[in-house]
Simulated assay, not measured.
Amino acid sequence: MTDLTNPIAQDRKLDTIRDKAAWMRRRLIRMVYDAQLGHPGGDLSATDILATLYFGVLRYDPADPRNPDRDRFIMSKGHCTGAFYSVLAAAGYFPEEQLSTYMQPLSKLNGHPNRTYLPGIETNTGPLGHGLPVGTGIAIAGQISGAGYRTYVLLGDGESQEGSNWEAAMTGGHRKLRNLTVIVDRNRLQQGAGTEETAGLDPLDRKWEAFNWHVEMVDGHDYRQLLDVLGRPVGDREKPLCVIANTIKGKGVSYMENNVKWHHGIPSAEQFEIAMKELA
């Protein structure tokens, strides 16, 4: 973890996060293009959040992925495996070469993360609304046992329309699970339309606050803001934390940005070349 009081150490950490995020973006676009499957828009909106967590915040050991003292991370928006598998490979959980098998027949890197296939995956996700209930249970277990691990859950904003999330939020707020952090990837687009057209979420911050959560709103592509809020000691708070990270769907690829068709679009050969040049 970064010493946030040391500007030099923080700048070095930010450089690492930035470099890892850039690599992840290029790698996931190639994975989606080669597989002709995937969800590149949501992958790209979540990349900076994942890079910050894995290279600036989380405590983990890829050589001992079930270490009981590890922090727990749950990718609740489980369809965005391009970004998730990329960060796991970058963190050393499995060889980078394995990414080339993404969504191929019999590959362990299938469309939704499966904990029995790859190290570093805490729970299977894909059906939306499941990650936070599981993460809340993990946080409760830590609270009861007095364990020092922290639990982080990444939600999609469209996924926030699932009622199971609000049951978990109510439980987390009631139990004052200060070891639980939710990050909402607030890109405002879901499959087929904008979130506010489908089932409006705003004011999202006030909704979480009503469930007794502390809420912070940040730019989800600003590494310094992300590192500052996600890296704070959990002992300094009395409630669970919800970070609403305002992001851009398709971030980094001009024709994908804020374009709902790229929720699960596949680039043509020409579009792939454009994306790789823009991400170089």
Rank of each mutant, 00 (worst) to 15 (best):
Q225T: 06
N6Y: 02
N6C: 02
L99W: 07
P240A: 04
Y93A: 01
I49C: 02
R186F: 14
G131D: 05
G163C: 04
E278C: 02
T181R: 05
R72Y: 05
G111F: 00
H263T: 09
L109K: 05
N110M: 08
G137R: 06
A63Q: 15
G78A: 11
I121L: 13
L37K: 05
N212P: 12
A89H: 14
R70D: 01
K239T: 11
Y60M: 01
R150G: 13
A22E: 02
R27Q: 14
L180R: 01
M31L: 12
V153H: 06
E167S: 15
Q190Y: 03
W213I: 01
R66S: 06
M217E: 06
W23G: 07
A35W: 04
R66T: 15
Y33V: 08
I183F: 09
I121H: 10
M276C: 01
A139Q: 08
R186M: 07
D43S: 14
H79P: 01
G41D: 09
M103Q: 15
P40L: 09
Q10Y: 00
G192K: 10
R70Q: 03
N114L: 11
A21W: 10
G172L: 14
I29K: 03
P119C: 10
N124H: 06
G92H: 11
G41S: 13
H79D: 09
P105V: 13
L154K: 03
T151L: 01
R30A: 03
V253F: 05
Q191M: 10
A9G: 02
P267D: 00
D202P: 00
G235K: 09
R12M: 12
L155K: 09
D15V: 12
L226D: 05
Y33W: 07
Y93V: 06
T123M: 02
W262H: 11
V32F: 00
K108E: 10
E96S: 15
A193L: 14
N6L: 03
Y152H: 13
L58P: 04
T52G: 09
G250C: 09
E270S: 11
A193P: 01
P65K: 13
T181F: 07
T151Q: 09
K176S: 09
V215S: 10
T116I: 15
G173K: 09
K108P: 05
R27D: 01
P105F: 05
K77A: 03
